[in-house]
Amino acid sequence: MKARRTTKALQYVALLGYMVFLGFPLVWMLSTSFKPPREMVEIHPTLVPHNPTFDNYVEAFTEQELGRAALNSLQVSLATAVLTVLVALPAAYALARFKTRLGTVALGWVLLSQLFPFVLLVIPLFLILRQVDLVNTHAGLVLVYVVWALPFALWMLQGFVRNIPRELEEAAAVDGATRLQTLRRVVAPLLAPGVVATSLFAFISAWNEFFFALVLLKSPDLATLPVTLARFVGVEGIARLGPLAAGSLLATVPSLLFFAFLQRRLTSGSLAGAVKG
């Protein structure tokens, strides 16, 4: 009994250790984001700011470059989400409802494409987009993001389609509904949660993406949030760390919400291994 209690205690200590390791960097960024410039240059920084201030957030919001970058990111991510779902929806339906070898081929391609470093992909992409004058445009970047998100979106959506009992569609057909009516009245409402989840996934993958945005967009006016934030790094003086921390935290909010939304599924394991980091 005593040995068991020691084990339990050790387990809690280990768990605490993990939580500190995982949580502390985040707490520190949070703390930094509330510090006025004066406290940033203190010889011994403290975890809790002496005079917490919202100035850094105000500055991050009003900083012209960050605001524009956030708007760019929003545009690109929304377009990616909408386009991905529009393109994936019919294909996912076909993959789920008809027997075709293409499904296996598609999944094989997803796995295979993981092997290739982005540099192999991005140079030809750059050349192809330049041929059609889409380099340094949001449209070009969105196209790349859609293709990038598509395999997983397809896989996710066709799972949702499979969960809709085929009998429902057959019953509607027996009642004299046309195929289109069946899709609109029966399938569409049941598929709504799947569409939401898939578009969120596409949105987040575009929102967080860095490499393609770095290479494919040259003008600072067009840069997305990660690229703009990364540009601040290195040239920031110590006094600018506060706004940088605040901006970074704000930029994380969408994906935090997304993960909060998916959290239950993720920890129950049903989606485990499905989302690429």
Partner: peptide, 9 residues
């Protein structure tokens, strides 16, 4: 949480 954060952040 680390998963939810973009690599740049």
């Amino acid at each position: 949480v680390p998963w939810a954060m973009p690599p740049v952040i």
